[in-house]
């Protein structure tokens, strides 16, 4: 009999260290399922960030390296030069990617590096305990803005997909949301397309996952999903910003 569901070989069998209800688990599994379905688990090379997912390699069954904080796109660019046919990806949080690593991100995109970046935007610094991130929303509370973020004090949250949209080398840019099953299915398709863009050598591919951090948001996992939908999506519209004809 043909099984209707199998756990992907891309995920190693173990209990994760992520908090209950954290969406890191979903995005890990999606990336690995896609590589599995594409038959590329044996070829892929991943770069993990500094953040809660620094040890993503414990779970992802592909060769991986921990980058220094924010430098994943630089490290991945070079890995791709050594193994031009390997699917190379970075997996990064918003502190890592949008704050300390903004330079490496923009320039990897600018060079049109043939790599994929999966961006976990949970609007907060998770690992260090809930400080404000460049993506923290106005009014959102964090340990370095306990009364809520204000424009006067910290400026407006950064929209990364919108920024990358202006860069010619970033040929595929899409924002998805992990707050419901439909969003998860869309996310998976986006990951497929990102790897397709890389395989066809078209340029830099970027997928942002709107994600939750129930622990540092101080919410139950279910409440956190609702909060994402009600607060993040209005500011971070879920949409495909750019997609090359070849993978549509």
């Amino acid at each position: 009999m043909k099984p209707v569901f199998e756990v992907t070989k891309g995920m190693r069998e173990m209990t994760s260290h992520y908090c209950p209800g954290c969406t890191h688990g979903i995005s890990h599994r999606l990336v690995m399922e896609v590589l599995d379905e594409r038959g590329q688990l044996g070829d892929a090379i991943g770069v993990s960030p500094v953040g809660c997912s620094i040890t993503a390699h414990q779970y992802m069954n592909v060769d991986m390296i921990e980058a220094s904080h924010g430098r994943a796109p630089a490290t991945a660019s070079a890995i791709k030069r050594v193994h031009p046919n390997a699917p190379v990806f970075t997996y990064q949080g918003d502190g890592d990617l949008a704050s300390i690593g903004m330079g490496e991100l923009i320039h990897a995109a600018g060079r049109g590096e043939k790599i994929c970046t999966f961006f976990v935007n949970n609007a907060i610094y998770g690992m260090t305990g809930g400080q404000m991130a460049p993506t923290t929303l106005l009014g959102q509370k964090a340990t370095t803005c306990v009364d809520g973020r204000t424009i006067e004090q910290a400026g407006s949250p950064m929209r990364i997909c919108e920024l990358l949209e202006t860069i010619p080398g970033a040929v595929y840019v899409e924002r998805v949301s992990l707050h419901n099953p439909a969003g998860v299915r869309t996310a998976k398709k986006a990951i497929h397309r990102a790897f397709e863009v890389q395989e066809k050598g078209l340029g830099y591919a970027f997928v942002e996952f709107l994600s939750t951090c129930p622990t540092n948001w101080g919410m139950t996992p279910v409440k956190a999903l609702d909060w994402l939908k009600e607060n993040m999506i209005p500011y971070y519209p879920v949409k495909q910003f750019k997609c090359p004809e070849e993978v549509k």
């Binding site: 220094s68 490290t75 991945a76 070079a78 890995i79 030069r81 050594v82 490496e104 320039h107």
Partner: peptide, 22 residues
């Protein structure tokens, strides 16, 4: 060859290439 955006990027590129066996 990559003209890196900074020395920070260049050593982190070297880190990636070295780890990849280059």
């Amino acid at each position: 060859f990559i003209q890196a955006e900074s020395e920070l990027a260049s050593i982190n590129m070297a880190y990636g290439a070295a780890a990849a066996g280059g």
